[in-house]
Design a protein around this nucleic acid. Structure first.
Length: 485
RNA sequence: GCGGCCGUGGUCUAGCCUGGGUAUGACACGGGCCUGCCACGCCCGGAAUCGCGGGUUCAAAUCCCGCCGGCCGCACCA
């Protein structure tokens, strides 16, 4: 048994249409844009359904679906307009682009403060005679490269941006949704949708995209009560796989909070919730860790930051960012919009703090494919959890004979509106099994001559290749039971 | 963006150095025969303006230039 390399996953994704480069017939299409084909869409939908079941419903969260285009002020308040941009300058001679604040610090030993206007940085370059590190040429005017896509809206061309993270909707919608939800803190708001980032160099297919799906949760809580969480009991003895000081520490939630490794019961609870979600989806325990970010790795808004990472064939891949954002966002929006973002609970008025679980959907799918693809004795098999597999089942007549075909089609017709099933009658039965193995279909139902006599069919399991024989009418409930998470 | 390597049917690839005939092979795919349970066999078929553009030449997948894209490294990365 061996895990296939990432190259093999990409090859199979292209061959079977899980995903492929966008607008591939046009050679000038920018990198970092990918389309999902039928199988990929089914997999993604099921992944999102699992997230809704295991995170949103389990934790009684509130769903939101916000606009992808948001006005400038949102990103003034969020800090993205200033902090999501780097000062860059291109060499007038060799045209290479350099991040100049770091360069000045390196060459001249002068620290350039965050948010220094570009003109002042240009002046610093002239003053300290900073040259291009590649060729020694003169550097041009400094400009800010912002990773947000800028839009101009309507005839007046109002400045707006594609959201670089989905969560801003959850912050700006907070006052209304909080009010109508009739809920007390802590309460999680959840959203799945697209975000957009103008990456300088997107690489490795779905790991770094310019347009990508996030499934985000923002838990709003009273900072004075972060340790008063009744449901914490559920995970008190749950072993977190925490990674810090370059070592894995398997620590129960209770211990992690007592030893102050994790800031609060609330934070530990949500780390446990997200870890248990990925383990349920079938990530092997030893290939999962929750890594504490170093000070200089943390996002500009984070006061505490953990990344859930999974070990794939190309190394540890960050799937979920778990950040304690404090009151950074709500306070920022309150300041810029002058809206009241505070809540009144338990006799006091305060601005809630936020703990977020920001999941990369595309990356998660890539990681699940990477970990699931195997070659076993020459058999290629995609071991996805039955709840995630694009097709739940395939239906075959044993051989291409009219009486078996009509019976098989009858079963297929009875299933196909309620689940994703595939029908195939071409080629040998073995070839059809193997084809389904490759795209992860967990069950193959075969109609044979015995079916005509006693109305039973065989169900073959993808992983064990074993068959069981069941009465036809029991098949839907059998499949339903097997696809539960 | 820089440096190195690379770009040929759906996928992988031969050919490129040492220009020359309807571009090689495998797998995959479609149709047929066969087939009473794991990539069986046989027959037939579709499928590539060789990444894009320009140049050299009687002749370019092959040589030259530019561009685009990919991989790896550097840099960057909420």
């Amino acid at each position: 048994m061996e895990t296939m390399g990432m190259d093999e996953i990409i090859r199979l994704a292209l061959e079977r249409g899980f995903f492929f480069p966008s607008a591939e017939i046009y050679p000038k299409t920018p990198a970092g844009l990918w389309d999902y084909g039928h199988l990929g869409v089914l997999l993604k939908q099921k992944y999102i359904q699992a997230w809704i079941r295991e995170i949103v419903r389990r934790d009684e969260m509130i769903l939101v679906d916000g606009s992808q285009i948001l006005p400038r002020d949102v990103f003034v308040a969020s800090g993205h307009l200033e902090s999501f941009a780097d000062p860059v300058s291109s060499c007038l001679k060799c045209r290479s682009i350099h991040r100049v604040d770091r360069l000045i610090e390196e060459v001249a030993g002068v620290k350039v403060p965050e948010r220094t206007p570009p003109e002042q940085i240009t002046a610093l370059i002239r003053e300290h005679n900073v040259r291009c590190p590649s060729c020694g040429g003169e550097l041009g005017e400094v400009s800010l490269f912002n990773m947000m896509f800028r839009l101009s809206v309507g005839a007046s061309g109002d400045e707006a941006y594609l959201r670089p993270e989905t969560c801003q909707n959850l912050f700006i919608d907070f006052p209304r949704i909080y009010k109508i939800s009739r809920r007390k803190l802590p309460v999680g708001f959840a959203q799945v949708g697209k975000s957009f980032r103008n990456e300088i160099s997107p690489r490795q297919s779905l790991t770094r995209l310019r347009e990508f799906y996030q499934a985000e949760v923002e838990v709003f809580f009273n900072p004075a009560k972060a340790n008063e969480l009744e449901k914490f009991e559920r995970f008190r003895d749950y072993p977190l796989r925490l990674y810090f000081d370059e070592e894995l520490h398997i620590t129960t939630c209770g211990e992690a909070v007592e030893s102050r490794i994790v800031s609060s019961r609330l934070a530990a609870y949500y780390l446990a919730l997200i870890q248990s979600f990925y383990l349920k989806l079938g990530i092997p325990e030893e290939k999962l860790r929750i890594r504490r970010l170093l000070e200089d790795e943390k996002a500009f808004y984070a006061v505490e930051a953990w990344d859930l990472e999974v070990l794939t064939s190309i190394g540890w891949m960050e799937l979920v960012a778990c950040n304690n954002r404090g009151d950074y966002d709500l306070s920022g929006h309150a300041r810029v919009s002058r809206a009241d973002m505070q809540v009144f609970e338990d006799g006091e008025k305060f601005t809630p703090h936020v703990f977020e679980l920001s999941m990369g959907v595309d990356r998660s799918i890539l990681a699940l494919l990477d970990l699931g693809y195997r070659v076993e004795n020459g058999r290629t098999v995609l071991k996805l959890h039955p709840a995630l597999a694009p097709y739940t089942a395939a239906v075959f007549p044993l051989v291409d004979k009219p009486e078996l075909v009509s019976k098989a089609r009858e079963l297929y017709e009875s299933l196909r509106l309620d689940m994703d099933v595939f029908y195939d009658e071409s080629g040998s039965i073995g070839r059809r099994y193997r084809r389904q193995d490759e795209i992860g279909t967990p069950f193959c139902i075969t109609i044979d001559y015995q079916t005509l006599e006693d109305n039973t069919a065989t169900i073959r399991d993808r992983d064990s290749m074993q068959q069981v024989r069941l009465p036809m009418h029991e098949i839907p409930s059998y499949l339903g039971g097997k696809t539960k998470l």
